[in-house]
């Protein structure tokens, strides 16, 4: 089986960890994958430089809507590259549509894994990652107009819609264009081999229990933290106030959010949180 696979999540919900699990599983090496140089066929659909190389157009010249309209052509390129291998595409954006009703992402991947995490823990992690106050991050997670990337000189990524947290979850779980496997970060932490194994099976990746166990061991949080301490991590932002692989803890919001912040998230996202067992 081959073709592009979307690995999707709201930011700071376990996407990078999932990608490292896949890299360690598929590369079948005795040493853990280098977090800065993973041997997994990947393609970014939102990196400005990649978009310019492929489309030949300086994407700074494009408005947000015009950027959205070149996205389907980039996905076609992913299908071309994935003619005879799995290409894994990391995405943080919500599943949205162009004005003409067709999906911004274009031709659907052959499959998608959607990983979600308790939004209260996401808020804590995102605050460390972006260097923004938690209150500001909570506001962003409540606002339907929140976006990632953009058209300023420091934006290395094209503008992408995140929507509010609930709409992000629903946009992916409700769409019917691509078969999607929904995975909770908390389940992956509690039983990594079991839940990762199910995701791998969904993607049609064959793996023995031993191979799964090796990948889990090689992607253990302590190993990722060890590598980041030693060599740093490319995806960590300069404005971050903690390492990228900070704690990975479930429930750290209890110590980090004020009661008002926690209840604001619960009030806005209660329905989706309850649906996925967070309330």
């Amino acid at each position: 089986m081959s073709g592009p696979v979307w690995l999707v999540s709201y930011p700071k919900s376990g996407n990078t960890w999932l990608r490292l699990l896949l890299a360690n599983l598929l590369c079948r090496r005795s040493d853990p994958q280098d977090i800065n140089d993973i041997g997994l066929a990947t393609l970014s659909l939102v990196t400005r430089q990649v978009a310019e190389e492929l489309t030949l157009v300086d994407t700074f010249l494009l408005t947000r809507d015009e950027c959205d309209r070149i996205r389907p052509a980039l996905m076609e390129e992913a299908w071309r590259e994935a003619a005879d291998l799995d290409v894994f595409i990391k995405l943080h954006e919500a599943y949205c549509h162009l004005a003409n009703g067709s999906p911004v992402l274009g031709r659907p991947a052959r499959a998608a894994v959607y990983i979600l995490r308790d939004p209260r823990d996401v808020a804590v992690s995102l605050a460390f990652h972006t260097g923004l106050p938690i209150g500001r991050v909570v506001e962003q997670m409540l606002s339907g107009s929140t976006r990632m990337g953009g058209n300023k000189p420091h934006h290395e990524q094209l503008s992408q819609p995140l929507l509010d947290w609930s709409s992000h979850v629903r946009s992916w779980t409700a769409q019917r264009d691509v078969p999607v496997h929904v995975l909770r970060y908390e389940d992956l932490r509690a039983d990594t081999a079991g839940f990762f194994g199910r995701a791998a099976t969904f993607l049609g990746l064959e793996a023995t229990p031993d191979e799964l166990a090796r990948a889990v061991r090689q992607s253990d949080f302590s190993e990722l933290q060890r590598q980041e301490t030693e060599k740093g991590f490319r995806e960590r932002r300069l404005e971050s106030t903690a390492p990228f692989f900070r704690a990975g803890r479930v429930g750290s919001w209890r110590d980090a959010l004020t009661p008002d912040q926690a209840s604001a998230i619960e009030a806005a996202h209660g329905a989706v949180m309850a649906e996925f067992g967070y309330l």
């Binding site: 492929l54 489309t55 030949l56 157009v57 494009l62 809507d65 015009e66 309209r69 070149i70 052509a73 980039l74 076609e76 390129e77």
Partner: peptide, 18 residues
Amino acid sequence: GTAWRLVGRRFYLEVPGV
């Protein structure tokens, strides 16, 4: 290519909507 093509000595580009 991605939103462009070559036909002999001609190069075509389309930036959608622009």
